[in-house]
Computed example of a mutant assay.
Amino acid sequence: MPKLLFSKIRFYEIKDIMPNMKRPRRIDIVLNRKRRKNDIQCLKVQKMHAETYPSNLSRQTDHKLHLTLESLLKDKKHLAAFCSFLKSEFSEENIEFWLACEAFRSTVSPDDLRQKAEEIYQEFIQPTACREVNVDHHVREKIKKSLEKPSRSCFDEAQKHIYLLMERDSCPRFLHSDAYLSLKRKSRSLWYI
């Protein structure tokens, strides 16, 4: 309608349109103003209440609704479901590489460090590896050079890259998958038992 009012139409065309429109009665206009005023007042009261009395419950439920990859990797049930989801999508090498890097970081002995680093490189990083992960050529070369004298941080850059890949791509798909939704339903039903 606003386009019609500002366009170049003649008065008689507007006059023809007007009978088809239902005109509000005066009482409807007054009641609508009162309703809007009450709605605005209610919103103000709710906002003031939320600011003065922050609810821990709402934060907890909000946090549960937005499960992050970090919290997913810490919980054993979620991790198992995530691993099976990645297997169904044929990308389980990402989570296996990430878990192997976490185990590698906890290695204490320098001899074990060298052996585990070599195993991780051959299994996940080497270009002809059976479960090759998707990392840049530069990262591969850095890791290959660091294998001469491996440290606990030699896979950090590749691990971070894979983590971000899972966080952006796999995790959101998992959170909308049937595997996660059924796990969520089971955890709710177990809570009530």
Results as ranks from 00 to 15, higher is better:
Arg36Lys: 15
Arg36Gln: 15
Asn38Glu: 13
Asp39Glu: 07
Asp39Gln: 06
Ile40Glu: 14
Cys42Met: 04
Cys42Asn: 07
Lys44Val: 00
Lys44Leu: 04
Val45Gly: 03
Val45Gln: 12
Val45Asn: 12
Gln46Pro: 11
His49Met: 10
Glu51Phe: 15
Thr52Trp: 15
Thr52Phe: 15
Thr52Cys: 13
Tyr53Asp: 08
Pro54Asn: 07
Leu57Lys: 03
Leu57Ala: 04
Ser58Asp: 02
Arg59Asn: 02
Gln60Phe: 11
His63Gly: 06
Leu67His: 09
Leu67Ile: 04
Glu70His: 11
Lys74Gln: 12
Lys74Arg: 13
Lys74Val: 03
Lys76Leu: 03
Lys77Asp: 13
His78Gly: 08
His78Cys: 13
Ala81Asp: 03
Cys83Met: 12
Cys83Lys: 15
Ser84Tyr: 05
Ser84Leu: 08
Phe85Trp: 09
Lys87Gln: 15
Glu89Asn: 14
Glu92Cys: 09
Ile95Leu: 12
Leu99Thr: 05
Ala100Gly: 13
Ala100His: 10
Cys101His: 02
Glu102Asn: 06
Phe104Arg: 03
Phe104Thr: 02
Arg105Phe: 05
Arg105Tyr: 06
Arg105Gln: 10
Ser106Met: 11
Thr107Pro: 03
Thr107Arg: 05
Val108Met: 08
Val108Leu: 09
Asp111Arg: 12
Asp112Ser: 12
Leu113Asn: 01
Leu113Met: 07
Arg114Ala: 15
Gln115Thr: 15
Ala117His: 05
Ala117Glu: 02
Glu118Met: 13
Glu118Ser: 15
Ile120Glu: 09
Ile120Ala: 11
Ile120Phe: 06
Gln122Arg: 10
Glu123Asn: 01
Ile125Thr: 01
Ala129Ser: 04
Cys130Leu: 01
Cys130Val: 00
Glu132Asn: 14
Asn134Thr: 10
Asn134Gly: 11
Val135Gln: 07
Val135Leu: 03
His137Trp: 02
His137Lys: 06
His137Gly: 00
His137Leu: 00
His138Val: 00
Arg140Ala: 06
Glu141Lys: 15
Glu141Trp: 13
Glu141Pro: 10
Lys144Gly: 02
Leu147Cys: 08
Glu148Leu: 03
Glu148Gln: 08
Pro150Tyr: 03
Ser153Asp: 07
Ser153Arg: 05
Cys154Ile: 06
Phe155Tyr: 04
Asp156Glu: 14
Ala158Arg: 10
Ala158Asp: 08
Gln159Pro: 09
Gln159Gly: 08
Gln159Ser: 04
His161Ser: 09
His161Ile: 01
Ile162Ser: 07
Tyr163Arg: 11
Leu165Trp: 02
Leu165Lys: 10
Met166Pro: 13
Met166His: 08
Arg168Pro: 06
Cys171Ser: 12
Pro172Thr: 03
Phe174Pro: 11
Phe174Ser: 10
Phe174Trp: 09
Phe174Cys: 09
